[in-house]
Design a protein around this nucleic acid. Structure first.
Lengths: 221, 221
DNA sequence: TGGGGTGGTCACAAAGCGGTCACAGAATCA
DNA sequence: TGATTCTGTGACCGCTTTGTGACCACCCCA
């Protein structure tokens, strides 16, 4: 079980780290908001402990960024007198908060509660860059744009491509997956064309690798 | 399940209110002792969260007044260093107390315990955004609108959709659940049509995901 | 230079799906 | 019993979905 601690006070950081390791958690950490997001993407932690008062990029923004694409539990570490921020954090989607100073036992108890609550639910969203596929609603969601809806076939295709990240999928593999009853290249060609039009405004596009197949990749800007 | 929060700190009030609503409770509140008793008589809440330090009429008096005529569970919200008052409160008949600062999880856990002890087997309303389904009365309730009544079938459907939050439910799943004896797409189509008309004015609507099924989602404004 | 193959674009039409409506039998309630 | 509500059915309509064929642009290689 991996914990990301986002906290710029190194002393507190050390205490937390020590305690949680002793409890059997694997601990990674970041000292500012930017590093937090990088670590989050790189390590994909199971739970996040988030200080709100951070250099570079404040905690609320970090929380917001994470929630755009992930359901990972977030516990806010707040100081007294920052109630408004805590409320805002919970609104944005944090799962709980503890007020400093707190005891290690208090924190781990809180973590367990949150993990238990989250543990029962939620299939994961698929995301690539700023774009997220929401399997529960069959929508492709983006930061600053309306979500995109799909027809059943289109959805199968984009889901298949998303699952495979930026890897190229051979044409025949795709056909077999989407038309189990038997499909053909012309049908796929057409489907790709339609899907491309739908996600034209998104930050990802369907790249074709001649002679091999297709891949969903991030648009660079 | 109705909660009366008696608390003069508006910020804390807001946090509590937000959390409890998310948990499916219906929240009403009062900022001083006198208003608390009025609200109590008018709304007849299932449980009371009571701050001791109140303007107009202090918490202990409120507690005493309520206990003279009702068994409604009362949980005291206390600050550190008010031990004598808490003890007095419990002696008067309060059921439990939590010390500020406390986490939402802590509070709801305490509430559930107390409710269970009192025999109010804690199940509660389902809510999505500003809309709440009242399973006891088969009503859909909203903040600024009249409640909506349902026929039995309509109620099964909206309950099923509410339970599943904003997830899409496959057509066949819905049919199996609503017509265990065997249903049919045309029947569901019709039922959806009728339910949509009933909840037209509400903050939620039934979204259809072509080829997959239906989901109850919040209307964006 | 030309021919075959690959992949992108477009228009079209058939099929199906979902939304709407009216109606009538069944169930419910006073 | 009579009135009202509830629920299944059939019909209609418009839109979406999806397969198909036609055409074009490009690349590779002889």
């Amino acid at each position: 079980m991996k914990v990301l601690i986002v906290e710029d006070d190194l002393v507190l950081m050390d205490v937390l780290s020590f305690t949680l390791r002793r409890e059997g958690y694997e601990v990674i950490h970041a000292q500012d908001g930017r590093a937090a997001l990088e670590q989050f993407d790189a390590e994909n932690p199971t739970i996040v402990l988030l200080d709100l008062n951070l250099p570079q990029l404040d905690g609320l923004s970090v929380c917001r960024h994470i929630r755009q694409t992930h359901d990972t539990p977030i516990i806010i570490l707040s100081v007294r007198d920052s109630d408004e921020e805590v409320i805002e954090g919970l609104r944005i989607g944090a799962d709980d908060y503890v007020t400093k100073p707190f005891s290690p036992a208090q924190l781990t108890a809180r973590m367990e509660t949150v993990l238990r609550r989250v543990g029962q639910s939620a299939p994961r969203k698929l995301s690539l860059g700023t774009v997220t596929l929401n399997p529960e609603r069959h929508l492709l969601e983006q930061v600053d744009a309306d979500p995109v809806q799909f027809s059943p076939l289109e959805y199968s295709l984009i889901e298949l491509l998303m699952i495979n990240g930026e890897r190229v999928l051979p044409t025949q593999t795709i056909i077999d997956r989407i038309w189990p009853g038997g499909g053909d290249k012309a049908m796929l060609k057409q489907l790709v064309y339609r899907l491309r039009q739908k996600i034209e405004a998104c930050d990802v596009y369907i790249d074709s690798v001649p002679g091999v197949g297709y891949a969903l990749v991030q648009r660079k800007r």
